[in-house]
């Protein structure tokens, strides 16, 4: 309970960040309850009503196949949450582990961190594009690719933080009391890294939305039949002059979600332990 209270305390007096939190809760609810909330099947098309203006019964209008935009947007929220959480999970678990192990064992660090340096020599979206060129378009591959791209920055940050922490007195105390390496890393060092990891997670979540949308737009992200906000923009972009609303809604959903996550990340960073401030600079 105290963890939740201290998390909510971050938002006290920060109206914008609170707005961000509320918006994200709405997105999560929409993602979970998409089949219940959606008025139509997101894949059902009806050529009779193609490119309908927003109104009743198609609140967000319909696309060029005559599919209901609102229903697609609701199922798109599912993809947004899935890709956000998935890439955060991949990035934090692999990047975090590499960073922590590298800082803890100097010999391992020489090898692993050089590898991270080399991967960081590739600009983020370019690395994602190249990896997608090798893989097939699928939800899982998109998650893995975005996760791997941000694993490098996570590794770099956690490397710096763990280097600082491993020389602290409590680590000496744990070593003296006979704690093993795994116990020192995961029971003594890791708990101190939770808040910087959460900050990092919020920025990765935000950036993963933009990267996924860009990949969808370039035709190298999710398979075209999957209803995602990026695919909605990508498919309807040639109708921008005839039906500009088709791009307004999914675009606004992406912008609001990224904006909200950035606001939350900023709020969390501001309330972070001052020792870590220099290391966390966003992604």
């Amino acid at each position: 309970m105290s963890a939740i209270t201290s998390f909510l305390a971050i938002f006290r007096g920060r109206r914008l960040a609170t707005f961000g939190l509320i918006w994200l809760l709405i997105v999560v609810v929409a993602a979970v309850a998409a089949p219940l909330l959606a008025p139509f099947d997101p894949l059902d098309f009806d050529p009779m009503v193609r490119l309908s203006e927003p109104g009743w019964p198609y609140i967000f209008g319909t696309d060029h196949f005559g599919r209901d935009s609102l229903s697609r947007a609701l199922f798109g929220a599912r993809m947004a949450v899935l890709i956000g959480l998935g890439s955060v999970l991949v990035a934090l678990s692999t990047g975090g582990l590499i960073g922590m192990l590298s800082a803890y064992s100097t010999r391992l660090g020489h090898v692993l961190m050089r590898l991270v340096d080399v991967l960081m020599a590739f600009p983020a979206l370019l690395l994602a594009l190249v990896l997608m060129a090798l893989l097939e378009r699928s939800v899982l591959n998109t998650i893995i690719v975005i996760g791997v791209v941000y694993a490098t920055t996570t590794a770099r940050i956690l490397f710096g933080l763990t280097l600082k922490l491993k020389n602290e007195v409590f680590v000496d105390a744990a070593t003296c009391s006979g704690a093993g390496h795994a116990s020192i890393l995961f029971r003594h060092i890791l708990p101190n890294l939770i808040s910087p990891l959460l900050v990092q997670a919020s920025f990765i979540f935000a950036f993963s939305q933009l990267q996924a949308a860009a990949l969808d737009f370039l035709g190298l992200g999710l398979p075209p039949e999957v209803p995602s906000w990026g695919n909605m923009l990508s498919e309807e972009r040639i109708y921008i002059t005839r039906a500009p609303w088709l791009l307004i809604f999914p675009g606004a959903l992406i912008i609001l979600s990224v904006f909200s996550m950035n606001l939350i990340g900023d709020a969390m960073r501001d309330s972070l332990d001052p020792r870590f401030k220099d290391d966390i600079a966003g992604v």
Partner: peptide, 16 residues
Amino acid sequence: MLFASVPTFWLGLYLI
């Protein structure tokens, strides 16, 4: 902060 949250291609399409 808002502009940092906008997908580039979306902005480009509306500028066009």
